[in-house]
Design a protein around this nucleic acid. Structure first.
Lengths: 177, 177
DNA sequence: GCACAATACCTCGATGCCGATGTATAGCGG
DNA sequence: CCGCTATACATCGGCATCGAGGTATTGTGC
């Protein structure tokens, strides 16, 4: 998820670590902050893997900056990760949102639609958080107001997302003709 | 989050690892599956910390079962974690839902309300996923249909949760008088 | 003139999680 | 009677993440 965000932001323009950090904080920081000590090693990993290159520049106000640029392999890798995400990226809303934030970088509408369809399939399978044996429980069947809240909120999210997915899929398919 | 779920499920009744695993899979597994190799060490951690005790029983159909029971410290610890959650448990929907699933175990309505109010405060602070400098961007201002989706879905979730929070807080306060 | 915040990057140890793999038993279909 | 699945628990190496701490410079408030 973090690596996806790094690749995604750098796809648009070279950035140095500190700015990248602020971009990532804006994207996911309110929900799941990323520590500095996670970001810098992640950058190193991607550099070591040949996905990005760094050039040192004198710092504008402080220490010298390391400007990070995606290599061609890095650009390919982002497109690969967007087109063929792991199941966790599909099911976990946090990761899914990160993926959505960069899905436009996949320039084939059919490939974008394929990814959205995977999320659609996931949302369409019946699943609850609470069960009576194997039977998923509905909000109305729960006494516990907090568990009822979980289901109420999840249902609202699901409804909104399904509507958006179907809408967006329609317009993506419209592009292909 | 995993430890919270273990404590939460065992608070109601002693369970052995395998059943606990299925409970956890039902609760969060569709979004974020928990590996066996994560669960068993987690149980050991909690046992070592004196939060739960195990007694061996002959297996119903297979290997002997380890029935897990919360100790008094374990019960206290759950209540402590519910009453005073970390910021991540408040902000990350996955963790928040896990917390909500067991919040009823906190039997003081005022303490429950205090936790809900923390989530309320978090949801009320203006935050977006995308910014123009420091200004949060609204869905309507985005060209990218995928980013627009993120904001649309997040807004729907937020709306539903705010309504539920205010409702539930009202009825929790009603109890106190 | 001095503390402090912001910029800018880094290391280190601890820890939690994962995938792969192992061990054993019971039941079922072919 | 053989393989498969489900039950039931466990270990191990690898790795991502975190918090704490470190280094250095520039601008701001008092």
């Amino acid at each position: 998820m973090l690596e996806l965000a790094i690749l995604g932001f750098l796809y648009d323009a070279p950035l140095h670590g500190y700015v990248l950090r602020r971009h990532i904080a804006a994207l996911t920081g309110h929900v799941r902050p990323v520590a500095e000590s996670t970001l810098y090693p992640a950058i190193k990993r991607l550099e070591k893997a040949g996905l990005l290159a760094r050039t040192t520049e004198p710092g504008a106000v402080a220490a010298p900056r390391h400007v990070l640029t995606l290599t061609e392999e890095g650009r390919q890798e982002l497109r690969r990760r967007l087109a063929d995400p792991g199941q966790r990226e599909i099911t976990d809303e946090n990761q899914w949102f990160t993926l959505l934030a960069f899905l436009r970088h996949l320039d084939d509408p059919a490939a974008q639609a394929a990814v959205l369809r995977r999320r659609l399939a996931f949302l369409e399978e019946p699943a609850s958080f609470f069960y009576d044996g194997d039977r998923p429980l509905r909000a109305e069947e729960l006494d516990d107001p907090f568990r009822r809240g979980v289901l109420t909120i999840a249902r609202a999210t699901s409804r909104a997302e399904l509507a958006w997915l179907r809408d967006t899929l329609r317009s993506l398919e419209g592009v292909g003709r």
